[in-house]
């Protein structure tokens, strides 16, 4: 049951940008390629009143190779009260998306987060640095092949055992 206004947007996206629409729990997602992303979001912004970019994130489908990543853009139209997400599939090797900072100011930090957490490069970004992790950090934590853990929990009451495997701050 897709909203009528949303349906017309999806039709335009399908026709002009070769988008593939799919519905998930009543929410509309349109798959577009990275080449069409900027033009499609420009259209959403200018013609369909999607002036509010809620968030940008990604999903890692490791060990699947192509597409390994889906970059998810969630837009919102406040005048029409609509919500739509674009998904950009990316392959395993050298994933790159173009930047949306020209259209939405708040894409800036979200795209930095995208690079920091997933190692997805953003082409044309004005300020590409790590945002959450320290700048000398190695790896991109939210990738599925990045380990979660840091320290094994110690099931022992012997303080010597714990101290052995724990770095200690000194005076």
């Amino acid at each position: 049951m897709m909203d009528k206004a949303l349906q017309s947007i999806v039709q335009v996206l399908e026709k002009e940008f070769a988008g593939e629409a799919e519905e998930s729990f009543g929410e509309v997602q349109v798959l577009v390629s990275a080449d069409n992303l900027v033009a499609a979001s420009q259209k959403l912004h200018d013609e369909f009143g999607m002036t509010f970019l809620s968030t940008i994130t990604a999903v890692d489908y490791f060990p699947q190779k192509a597409p390994r990543f889906h970059v998810v853009y969630i837009f919102r139209s406040m005048s029409e009260n609509l919500q739509l997400s674009l998904r950009v599939p990316l392959a395993d090797e050298a994933p790159v998306v173009p930047t949306l900072t020209g259209i939405y100011n708040n894409a800036n930090w979200r795209e930095r987060e995208l690079w920091d957490m997933f190692g997805i490069e953003v082409e044309g970004h004005p300020d590409m640095r790590r945002i959450l992790m320290p700048k000398d950090w190695e790896g991109h934590p939210l990738r599925k092949d990045y380990p979660l853990g840091y320290e094994e929990p110690q099931f022992t009451f012997s303080f010597e055992d714990i101290d052995l495997s724990k770095p200690k701050g000194e005076i």
């Binding site: 934590p141 990045y146 979660l148 853990g149 840091y150 929990p153 724990k166």
Partner: peptide, 9 residues
């Protein structure tokens, strides 16, 4: 218990 947090100050 993850990559980001120091396990005890």
């Amino acid at each position: 218990n993850n990559y980001a947090v120091v396990q005890g100050v």
